[in-house]
């Protein structure tokens, strides 16, 4: 092999490493910067989460959540302190105002993405958290506002958590863990905690969903037995603790003796009481536009071979709805 070839190869190699923006070095640097930003943002989220739950954050708790070595954590904390994002007092870590703003931005991004993935991309609930975790780091304030507008300014994410507004105000999460609810009265599910993922999967697998009205039938240390009036659900107490419930609000109480549209028998007339809270975004508007507004009288008129969908007579027109959609419309037989 002669000299010139070697020389050429070396030049190409050096170029490949050092060329601005496209070289390996540049790519590595961008990667590092992105990774660093993600770390900072994840740390901010952890601190915010702890503060909201009235618990102290410490380097240990941070190391546990981010899954990093102590040395790395110390460097991260120092960096964030110099950026004015947090303060350490003793062993405790606190968000500064600036840090809190940023943390809220990330939370807002995360929850808006979850809303987007559920409403628009129609991704199954079990997958949206992971996907949002990946996407939450990339949006600017302006892009977030656009996303917010495109989704019709939702106030809660699909788990029931409040979405911070653009000013950074955060509604309080209502409700208490299912395990703490002692009475026999029906309650409404207001929040499903998505971490740890394993517990969340069990909740979803059991068939519980946001906005559902349930009643506790029986409890013992091994399991809690619930019903929504039709199906029975079994949850381990550890899992049930991740389900938050609240007493039925006044207007929703009506729902307690309303039945889902899907359960009407053939030709049975009923008046629409309310659309379930689980229907949001585009689907809800579509329902309303088709005339499925509260107070409208409807009845099932056609049924096909499979029994799903059924066609309902709505304001003089036949509208076909699938069973799972008709289950989200609450009606009172008349």
């Amino acid at each position: 092999m002669n000299m010139t070839v070697w020389l050429a190869l070396t030049i190409v190699l050096i170029a490949a490493i050092f060329i601005p923006r496209m070289g390996f070095l540049a790519i590595y640097k961008t990667y590092r910067a992105t990774r660093e930003r993600e770390l900072v943002e994840d740390a901010l989220k952890h601190l915010l989460d702890r503060e909201q739950h009235g618990r102290q954050a410490s380097p240990e708790s941070l190391a546990g959540t981010l899954n990093l070595q102590r040395g790395r954590i110390t460097r991260l904390i120092e960096d964030m302190e110099t950026q004015g994002l947090l303060e350490s007092r003793g062993t405790n870590l606190h968000l500064t105002t600036q840090g809190e703003r940023w943390a809220l931005h990330v939370v807002r991004a995360h929850r808006l993405w979850e809303r987007y993935l559920t409403d628009e991309a129609r991704m199954p609930l079990g997958r949206i958290h992971g996907e949002s975790e990946r996407r939450e780091h990339s949006l600017t304030e302006a892009q977030l506002n656009d996303l917010d507008a495109a989704l019709g300014h939702p106030t809660r994410d699909p788990h029931g958590d409040p979405i911070p507004t653009r000013e950074g105000t955060l509604l309080k999460t209502e409700g208490m863990p299912l395990t703490a609810w002692q009475s026999e009265d029906p309650v409404r599910i207001v929040h499903l905690e998505d971490e740890p993922a394993l517990a969340f999967e069990q909740i979803l697998a059991a068939g519980l969903r946001l906005g559902q009205t349930i009643r506790i039938l029986d409890r013992n240390p091994q399991r809690i037995l619930l019903t929504d009036g039709e199906t029975e659900f079994r949850l381990a107490p550890a899992v049930a603790a991740n389900v938050s419930v609240a007493p039925l609000p006044e207007s929703e109480a009506a729902k307690a003796n309303a039945i889902p549209l899907a359960e009407l028998t053939y030709d049975q007339r009923a008046e629409i009481v309310v659309l379930d809270e689980a229907v949001q975004g585009f689907t809800r508007r579509r329902f309303l536009d088709l005339g499925l507004t509260p107070g409208t009288v409807v009845y099932p008129e056609l049924q096909n071979f499979f029994g799903d969908p059924r066609a309902y007579r709505v304001r003089g027109t036949l509208i076909a709805l699938r069973k799972d959609q008709a289950a989200q419309i609450w009606v009172k037989p008349v």
């Binding site: 585009f282 508007r285 579509r286 309303l288 536009d289 088709l290």
Partner: peptide
């Protein structure tokens, strides 16, 4: 269109 509200 059924309405001018939704955005299909």
């Amino acid at each position: 269109t059924y309405s001018l509200l939704s955005a299909s």
